[in-house]
Amino acid sequence: MADLDGLQPLASCDAPTSMDNWELFNGFVEKHATVLLGASKAAYQLRLACEELFSNIIRHATCSDSNSHCAHLWIRVLKIPDPSPALIIELEDNGRPFDPHFDQRRTIDRGQAIEDRPIGGLGLFLVQNSVDRVEYAWVNQHNRYRLFVDLPVT
């Protein structure tokens, strides 16, 4: 688990986990991924990984906090400086605990006939395989996902 204590977010946004905020969440990530990574494959893949998590969070993050009407999502953009620079998108929600068990997920069987392909699992596979590293933790009654994209040393 990366220790990011002391890092100030470059940007942040937050809103209820509703499809009404779909454009807000995805637009925020697209904007900052493009600014920080350029119009690159890495920016596209980071956007893809976030889109898949947004979809999961909005569908499944019913609220665990009795004081709130629905779950809330916080998004932060962080940057680790040299000597191991990385861009991090941190997503945090106060919905029910959902550990994707990224470290235990099986890879997709690419040789499996299309007729036999299961529908589920594709989204989380793309999350895991679209960034350099992904972490999940249950912290202070929140789900916290961190997506890491390695940056060149300056």
Binding site: R47, E52, I119, L122
Partner: peptide, 8 residues
């Protein structure tokens, strides 16, 4: 852009 929902 094409997500897993589109792939499905």
């Amino acid at each position: 852009f094409l997500s897993s929902a589109g792939l499905r």
